[in-house]
C-alpha cells in the first residue's frame, strides 16, 4: 500500500524517473506531443488542436491501448480555455490536454474515435463554451432550457456573491471580457 506515497506534484518533474517502457513507446508514437509520467500509472500528454485527433487515435488503437474514455474535463485556467481527455486502460490513466484561444474556442469532435464522448463533449460545451465541430447534437445537457445564451458558468469570470451567512444573494454579476456582457439584476 505504498503507491500513494510515491506521488510527486507537477513542479518537481525532475524527481520522477522518466525512463519507463510505456513512456518511451508513447514518445515514439506521438512525435509532436509532449508526454510525461506524473506518477506510477498516470501519464500526461500535451497537444495542439490540430494534432488532437491523431493523438487520440494513436492512443486508442496502437499497442498503448487506452481504449476507454473516462471523462472529458473542460477548464478555464484564467487565461485560456481547454479540455482534458482522460483516457483509461485497466489501471493506467492518460490525460490529453489541449488548449484553445479564448476568442475562438473550437475543437474537432472525438465521437468518431470514442462514441462514449458524445455526452461529455455536450457537457463541456454547456458549461465552458467550447464548440466541437462535427458533434451530432450540441444542445443543452445540464443547464436549464431558458439559461441565457453565451453565459458559461464554469469560466473563471462568472461569479456570484454570497452574504455573511454564505447564502447566494440576489443577482449574479457576469463580466465577460471578450463580449462585454454585463448582466446585473
Amino acid at each position: 500500500m505504498t503507491d500513494i506515497s510515491s506521488t510527486t506534484p507537477a513542479v518537481q518533474e525532475a524527481h520522477v524517473p522518466q525512463t519507463d517502457a510505456l513512456l518511451e513507446r508513447m514518445k515514439t508514437l506521438l512525435p509532436g506531443a509532449t508526454a510525461v509520467k506524473r506518477r506510477d500509472r498516470r501519464y500526461e500528454v500535451d497537444t495542439t488542436p490540430e494534432q488532437l485527433l491523431t493523438v487520440l487515435e494513436t492512443l486508442k488503437s496502437s499497442d498503448l491501448g487506452f481504449g476507454f474514455v473516462c471523462t472529458i474535463v473542460g477548464f478555464d485556467d484564467g487565461t485560456q480555455l481547454g479540455t482534458k481527455y482522460i483516457l483509461g486502460d485497466k489501471a493506467l490513466v492518460c490525460s490529453v490536454t489541449v488548449r484553445v484561444p479564448n476568442d475562438n474556442p473550437v475543437l474537432p469532435t472525438s465521437t468518431g474515435i470514442f462514441p462514449a464522448s458524445v455526452l461529455y463533449e455536450r457537457e463541456v460545451h454547456d458549461v465552458v463554451g467550447i464548440r466541437f465541430t462535427g458533434h451530432p447534437n450540441l444542445s443543452r445537457l445540464i443547464l436549464a432550457d431558458d439559461w441565457p445564451e453565451a453565459v458559461y458558468p464554469l469560466r473563471k469570470d462568472y461569479q456570484f456573491f454570497k452574504d455573511e451567512a454564505g447564502i447566494p444573494v440576489k443577482g449574479c454579476l457576469l463580466v465577460d471580457t471578450a463580449n462585454k456582457i454585463q448582466i446585473k439584476k
Partner: peptide, 20 residues
C-alpha cells in the same frame, strides 16, 4: 449524474434567496 455549476434561477437570470 447531475452535479456542476451555478445556482441562478429561471426566466430573469436573477437569483432568489431561500427566504425570497
Amino acid at each position: 449524474t447531475d452535479r456542476a455549476i451555478a445556482l441562478t434561477d429561471s426566466r430573469t437570470g436573477s437569483t432568489m434567496s431561500w427566504k425570497e
